[in-house]
Design a protein around this nucleic acid. Structure first.
Lengths: 211, 211
DNA sequence: GGCTTGTATCTAACTGGATAGTTACAACCC
DNA sequence: GGGTTGTAACTATCCAGTTAGATACAAGCC
């Protein structure tokens, strides 16, 4: 015990206490990212504040400083993810097939976005004005396409949109048991391409004008 | 077990703090029913054991005696609800339109069934053999209908089924914000009939044989 | 019938650990 | 100094699961 460096309480040689670089924006972003993963995996009730702080490598306190409480943090995550999905899947000219393709690709590349959206839909919280406005613009675009004869016009635009929206999630959010029915390897790229093609063909069947 | 015609008289008489009649089966059924409601509303993590016992007017302990723990209770609820949906929405001859109609009607009349199924799909638990077998029988029926020329055969049966399954939920599990886009009164019977018709027309567009 | 005993059903109160949120304070930078 | 950013320790509450025991009921025995 005499020849050992005998590290005292002072962290002379131990940089374990790597003092986080004082960067509020970076820390906030780290916390939001960690919260996104945690909420995506476990939902609101299942998510743990301590795990989020740990994931972010930040202190729990900062979470409350920057976001408020757990609910406010969840809302921030939801809003953030909604921006991403909304941008990634535009609906130019009410083209529902292109919309479905873009949304499918985005949610496949960002599974947490799909899960957050789904979990959000299941909490019985009131919709925000922003959310409603986003959806309304999409439904309006579909209605315009109907008037232009590019989309079948004998069904309400909002129903067409709601149906196609759900179709887009058909594989990503399918019951695990249904996915288990398919090929033994869970998710080969080939299989995924096949489903993507089937999805788009199905959407075409829904939206193409009917006699 | 959903076909128990014995006690159709619902025990809605008096959940007062009177000594519970000693009837194990009735208590068990009451607990299962209460758990179904609680899990449907709040999901697994959000559900509270104490609330379930209170809803059932039974003691918390009985829940552990009859079902095991929270997870086992959830599994029991899921299995029970799955039986109901499976029976209510058969798929004779791979008729996906009739399947969609029956499933839509059933889930509309039993919202908790749809919510339980959705919560179940969100937990990343492994699928049971029963679940897989149920889905496989449906997919096989679709494949048979394809061979018989009643359903378009240029898309994989499993994809067709997954897509139609999700379409069925398109209104029931639509984001609240999307539902808010529609008419101001949230859910009129007329609007519901309209959506049902649109859903079935859309399913027809998906499954009808293509040249 | 009355009494005992055994078992299934039910209850109130408790526990140990987890968890959201807080306080007190230190370090940094202007 | 003073505002900002960070950390550790703390608290009050909640909650799944348990303990210990009470009560109804039926079978067995007299």
């Amino acid at each position: 015990m005499s020849d050992s460096p005998a590290p005292p309480a002072t962290p002379a040689n131990a940089p374990v206490r790597s003092p986080r670089p004082r960067d509020a924006e970076a820390t906030k972003a780290l916390l939001l990212r960690a919260a996104t993963e945690e909420f995506a995996e476990h939902g609101f009730a299942g998510a743990r504040i301590d795990r989020i702080a740990e994931r972010a490598g930040a202190n729990k306190r900062l979470l409350y400083v920057y976001f408020g409480d757990k609910q406010a943090l969840f809302d921030a995550v939801v809003a953030d993810q909604a921006v991403g999905v909304f941008r990634a899947a535009p609906m130019d000219d009410g083209d529902l097939v292109a919309f479905a393709a873009a949304r499918f690709d985005y949610v496949l590349a960002h599974p947490e976005a799909g899960r957050i959206a789904a979990w959000r839909a299941f909490e019985q919280l009131a919709a925000t004005e922003t959310e409603i406005a986003n959806f309304r613009s999409r439904v309006d675009a579909v209605a315009a396409a109907q008037r232009a004869g590019r989309v079948r016009a004998d069904l309400p635009a909002i129903d067409l949109f709601a149906i196609v929206l759900r179709m887009t999630d058909s594989w990503i959010s399918a019951p695990p048991a249904l996915r288990a029915v398919g090929t033994t390897p869970p998710l080969s790229p080939t299989r995924l391409r096949e489903h993507r093609a089937a999805l788009l063909a199905a959407v075409r069947g829904v939206v193409e004008p009917h006699p």
